[in-house]
Amino acid sequence: MTFPRLIAALTMTLAAAGSQAYDFKSVGAAPVILYDAPSTKGAKLFVVPRGAPLEVVVAYGEWLKVRDVNGELAWTEAKGLSAKRTLIVKTPNLKVRATPDDAANAAFTADKGVLLELVESVASGWIKVRHRDGLTGFVKSSEIWGI
Rank of each mutant, 00 (worst) to 15 (best):
L73C: 06
V48W: 03
A9M: 06
G80L: 00
Y60P: 06
P4G: 15
S121M: 08
V57R: 10
P49E: 09
I147V: 14
T11I: 14
K140Q: 07
D133F: 14
T109Y: 14
K65V: 05
E62I: 07
E143P: 13
V27E: 03
W145V: 02
I7P: 06
R5D: 15
K84E: 14
A8K: 05
L118N: 00
A59V: 13
L6Q: 13
L94Q: 03
W75G: 04
D23S: 08
L64M: 10
L115C: 01
L135P: 04
R132F: 09
A17S: 08
A98W: 03
A123N: 09
V119T: 10
A98H: 04
A106I: 11
L87E: 01
R85A: 02
G80F: 00
I144V: 15
E77K: 10
R5S: 14
L116Q: 00
I88Y: 07
N105L: 14
R130A: 12
F108P: 04
T136L: 02
A8L: 04
K44G: 15
N93G: 15
K84H: 03
F24G: 02
A30R: 10
A52N: 15
E72Q: 09
T76R: 03
L45M: 09
V32M: 02
L118I: 07
S82V: 00
R97C: 08
K25C: 06
G51M: 00
E143V: 12
V57A: 12
G18R: 05
T91Q: 08
S142M: 09
D101C: 09
G42E: 02
T13P: 10
S121I: 09
A17R: 02
A83E: 07
P100T: 05
L94A: 01
L116V: 06
E143N: 15
G28E: 01
T136M: 14
I127C: 05
A29S: 10
S19T: 13
S19N: 10
K41A: 12
K90D: 08
R5T: 10
D68G: 07
A9W: 05
V119Y: 01
W126C: 01
T11G: 09
F24A: 09
L54G: 01
D68Q: 03
D36K: 01
A16Q: 14
S19K: 05
G28V: 01
T136G: 04
K95Q: 13
A21H: 11
D111W: 03
